[in-house]
Nucleic acid binder design. Structure first.
Length: 681
DNA sequence: AAAAAAC
């Protein structure tokens, strides 16, 4: 336990102690011998262990004014003793040069003040401003809901015919006339998202279409219909002790029977216990932690800046998905939630926190950022949840996670979920959980029986062609590669061979990431070439093939990547390619994952490729402009220059004198509102 | 070793 102790020096400095490199390495090796799942009772009581760096009583801790976390006053507004920087003025960095107090965009600063004063040639993005993605198209700077924007600003101003949901009426989720639809709480705007990871086809109610046909169109009638009782007698969620509003809301989406992980974990989570939950990919883990969390939060309100529950997730896309999935439930519970992640504008996150958020769904970086800014204060968090917990406990995430969890008061509830929970999370469990109960609804291996696995041993020179042949098929395909550059390269190579493919990785800006994933979900792009950014948690309907052209790092990654297909009982195929020098490693990985198959030699055109649904691609080059067209939602095409060839558009423009897509800051004096787009378009 | 995660 010595790794949890703190040096006196660190304490007196009032700094947040960090783990040393040695401590982290020790933690990574899983040196703990604690068998939390089997013998958790034998662990010493939480209070008796000096786990936290700061186990002084609250009264002994540094005063707020001394606590950087909660103090974002400027130094000049504090007493000298409180100041972070008590160098003499002359020694301090010039204010205009001081990033901490300056979050203006570069183009609104004088040149000397800019963060990036590299010459143009050195900059990463030295396209002329005109060539850059249009600001107005960039979700990062505007995530207001459509209904709060002027029409011109709305994301979806496609004509009805162009919209995503132009399935025939019978195929729609909701084919009632508008007037017949339920009130806002049931409104599609808040309801075009999944409540869990089951496909719609999987939901009992959807098959039966038992929704009464509406004949009236008044709002009153719609409101009355909401009141219609839903049969609770035979509802598995009601039986678990969940509140009626949540059960009803689920039932309205046809979700009446909990999946095994939900059945297992919800009662303990409701009872306030710490839970380790393992359920195979696509088995509904989001609801398993979401429902009890919301239930326990119901009835009281969050104070400004003090969320009462946090969900930490490893990627922005997953954060969005979790947020979307819980949205309707949060709403009917009378609570507020907020997605807090990087690549998105600060202002909505800041203002939501200022209003008070019950449930915060966050990626670690942005949350830490907001904490440092004094916008978020975790001292009222009662429930802390780690989604993809084993991944969050790995090097690279662990430090950020511990930094955040250290700010959460002890004694609260902790929920850790993943499809692959192994001993790698022991350090986190030891440090933050009390007497956890483990619910494992599968054996952590490739137990999804509707999933078919192939592993092809190929020659390096065949890789490009085999990749294209396997990917050339009907149905959605996710191709996994190891690196960001690889993703771009493979996507390009596939397009050159006639396959419509787009790359998704963390090197893209959030606007691009959203566009690519959106186009893939819509079916505009059938093949997604992704790094492991898409390996975990991301749900896309009807992905029927996962193709791993670079082997995953370990067997857990194999299972997570594979888990993008065959979700919730659907069928799916996983094809893994291996080069001769990767043969041993890949075979071991297959064994560890419990797949139970052997590598098979394959060449282009082989039957095994056809058996997996693949065929020789057309070879008709998919041009860049075709791709851009497909990536751009239909209603946003043919506006501005998007989709067209990139040419000279007036040459470089001095920052601050752009085309006016983004003018918020220039109105001056409204930094908090600087992303406001009022009057635009 | 890479990817992800703040700007």
């Amino acid at each position: 336990m010595s790794r949890h102790s703190t040096t006196p020096a660190a304490k007196t400095a009032g700094k947040k102690p960090r783990w040393t490199r040695e401590q982290k390495l020790a933690a990574q090796k899983g040196k703990s011998s604690n068998a939390y799942a089997k013998d958790s009772k034998s662990r010493p009581e939480r209070e008796s262990r000096p786990r936290r760096e700061d186990n002084r009583s609250y009264g002994d801790r540094p005063q707020r004014s001394d606590d950087r976390r909660y103090d974002n006053r400027r130094d000049e507004n504090r007493s000298y003793g409180d100041r972070r920087d008590n160098r003499s003025y002359g020694d301090r960095p010039q204010r205009s040069d001081d990033r901490r107090y300056d979050n203006r965009r570069d183009e609104n600063r004088s040149y000397g003040e800019r963060r990036d004063n590299r010459s143009y040639g050195e900059r990463r993005d030295n396209r002329s401003y005109g060539d850059r993605p249009q600001r107005s198209d960039d979700r990062r700077y505007d995530n207001r809901r459509d209904e709060n924007r002027s029409y011109g600003e709305r994301r979806d101003n496609r004509s009805y015919g162009e919209r995503r949901d132009n399935r025939s009426y019978d195929n729609r989720r909701d084919n009632r006339s508008y007037g017949d639809r339920p009130q806002r709480s049931d409104d599609r705007r808040y309801d075009n998202r999944r409540d869990d990871t089951r496909s719609y086809g999987e939901r009992p109610e959807r098959r039966t279409h038992s929704r009464p046909q509406q004949t009236t169109t008044t709002r009153a009638a719609a409101a009355a219909r909401i009141q219609e009782p839903i049969d609770m007698s035979d509802n598995g969620f009601a039986a678990l002790g969940l509140p009626e509003v949540l059960v009803e809301r689920l039932a309205r989406d046809g979700i009446t029977e909990p999946f095994p992980i939900q059945q297992a974990a919800i009662p303990d989570a409701l009872a306030g216990r710490d839970v380790l939950g393992r359920g195979r990919t696509g088995s509904g883990k989001t609801l398993a932690f979401g429902l009890p969390t919301l239930t326990r939060l119901m009835g009281s309100k969050a104070r400004p800046h003090q969320p009462r529950a946090i969900v930490l997730v490893p990627t922005r896309e997953l954060a969005m998905q979790v947020s979307d999935a819980l949205q309707p439930l949060v709403h009917v519970a009378g609570l507020h939630h907020k997605l807090v992640a990087g690549g998105m504008p600060y202002e909505p996150q800041l203002s939501a926190l200022a209003r008070g958020v019950d449930l915060l769904i966050a990626t670690p970086g942005r949350l830490s950022d907001l904490i440092a800014r004094g916008a978020a204060d975790l001292s009222a968090v009662q429930i802390a949840i780690l989604d993809e917990a084993d991944h969050m406990a790995e090097m690279g995430f662990l430090e950020a996670i511990t930094e955040i969890l250290d700010l959460v008061p002890e004694g609260g509830q902790r929920l850790l979920f993943s499809a692959t929970l192994d001993r790698g999370i022991d350090t986190v469990v030891d440090r933050y959980l009390t007497d956890p109960v483990t619910h494992s609804t599968d054996d952590g291996t490739a137990s999804v029986t509707t999933m078919e696995h192939h592993a092809l041993l190929i020659e390096p020179r065949d890789k490009k062609v085999v990749t294209a042949e396997v990917a050339n098929r009907t149905g959605r395909t996710v191709v996994f590669v190891r690196t960001k550059l690889g993703a771009d390269r493979v996507a390009t190579e596939l397009r050159e061979q006639g396959i419509v493919a787009a790359a998704l990785h963390g090197g893209l800006n959030q606007g691009q990431r959203n566009k690519v994933l959106g186009a893939f979900k819509d079916g505009r792009i059938p093949v997604l070439v992704a790094t492991d950014v898409a390996a975990r948690g991301i749900h896309v309907d009807d992905v029927s093939l996962v193709l791993q052209i670079d082997p995953p790092a370990d067997h857990k990654d194999y299972l997570h990547r594979a888990g993008r297909t065959a979700r919730a009982g659907e069928a799916g195929t996983v094809v893994t390619l291996a080069l001769p020098h990767q043969r041993k490693g890949v075979q071991r990985l297959l064994d560890e994952a419990g797949v139970g198959i052997q590598l098979t030699k394959a060449r282009p055109g082989d039957d095994i490729i056809a058996a997996a649904g693949g065929s020789r691609p057309s070879g008709d080059f998919v041009s860049q402009s075709t791709l851009e067209d497909l990536l751009t939602p239909p209603g946003q095409r043919d506006r501005g220059h998007r989709g067209g060839p990139r040419g000279y558009r007036g040459g470089p423009r001095r920052p601050g004198q752009g085309r006016g897509e983004y003018r918020g800051d220039r109105r001056g004096g409204r930094s908090e509102r600087s992303y406001s787009r009022a009057g635009r378009d």
